[in-house]
């Protein structure tokens, strides 16, 4: 009872302390907090460009992502910025806008598109922005087998403003396979002048339980193309061995005990308690025998 009471008091104190902390926090922030907006564009193989920004607030011990912050995306053009759209950040502080690669935004002299993401800020947080320029491009991943060696073929094209596609050459491409926590790099190749590059695909990469895997080709942080990603699925992986089905069920550490342990226990318990029951039955018989001839029990 007492412990419950102290518990309640502790909780109340804790909550009160928390509120006070927040109140003080509000009062102290006379000057708006510094925000950081990270902005990048990714060209994907489905002919679209992802505009992606992450807004975070800096403080002494790291940074926290800002939620519900309106981020406005612009296309930066010769005669001023053209607003594309506004997206509010999610719980991870991320706002993503996807636009088609074939679009009508004006390009600059180098034939590059330029985008800007802006967070206007308010009286609590400073405004921040980021800019990113790129030439839309595409990587197409395909597969072929020759002399029983497996190859991954990557074809890179860039999209001109008139809608034509031209191959891109002399660009480094990383081929990788997405795994649970990260991307496993398979090869690093360079596209030739025709925009094509190939790499041998190893035989010992593990796919899903039926051997399927995704192969991703990517140009990373290129000056002209930014980040370009293309991917394709193939069943070239080794079958992933799932432990769950053949997981041992009767071990010392499993919920159910090994069979012979249970049998031994039952045998021992039956043996011992059987004898107990015998002894108790004898006692009951003694009691009974005393009741049948009443004169006998009086005698002693």
């Amino acid at each position: 009872m007492k412990r419950i009471k102290t518990g309640i008091i502790l909780v109340i104190l804790f909550l009160a302390g928390m509120m006070q902390g927040f109140a003080r926090n509000n009062a102290d922030t006379t000057s708006p907090a510094v925000t950081v907006l990270r902005f990048a564009c990714v060209s994907t193989s489905d002919d679209s460009i992802q505009l992606k920004s992450v807004v975070s607030v800096k403080h002494d011990d790291g940074s926290t992502n800002l939620v519900n912050a309106p981020v406005i995306f612009y296309s930066v053009e010769k005669d001023g910025d053209l607003k594309i759209g506004e997206v509010k950040t999610d719980v991870h502080g991320t706002a993503v806008l996807k636009i088609p690669a074939r679009n009508t935004f004006l390009r600059n002299d180098q034939q590059m598109l330029s985008f800007k993401a802006m967070y206007d800020g308010n009286d609590k947080y400073e405004a921040s922005e980021g800019e990113f320029g790129l030439k839309p491009a595409k990587l197409v991943v395909s597969f072929y087998e020759e002399d029983s060696i497996r190859y991954v073929k990557v074809e890179g094209t860039q999209l001109n403003s008139d809608g034509t596609e031209v191959s891109i050459g002399a660009v480094d491409v990383i081929i990788s396979v997405p795994k649970m926590f990260s991307m496993l790099k398979i090869a690093e190749i360079s596209l030739d002048s025709t925009g094509i590059g190939t790499a041998e695909f190893p035989r010992d990469i593990i796919g899903d339980s039926t051997g399927n895997l995704t192969v991703v080709a990517s140009i990373e942080e290129n000056d002209i193309f930014g980040t370009v990603q293309g991917s394709s699925d193939k069943n070239w992986g080794l079958h992933k061995h799932l432990i769950s089905p053949d997981r041992p069920s009767r071990e010392l550490w499993t919920p159910i005990a090994p069979l012979w342990m249970i049998i031994t226990l039952i045998v021992m318990l039956l043996g011992v308690w059987g004898h107990y029951v015998y002894a108790v039955v004898q006692l009951v018989m003694i009691n009974k025998s005393s009741k049948i001839p009443p004169e006998e029990s009086n005698k002693a």
Partner: peptide, 22 residues
């Protein structure tokens, strides 16, 4: 429990005591 020491009771008691001792 009504133990009076009849021969039958004594026998039963001895049997169960022997068993329980073991």
């Amino acid at each position: 429990i009504g133990y009076t020491g009849t021969p039958e009771q004594q026998l039963r008691l001895k049997k169960s005591t022997d068993i329980m001792a073991g």
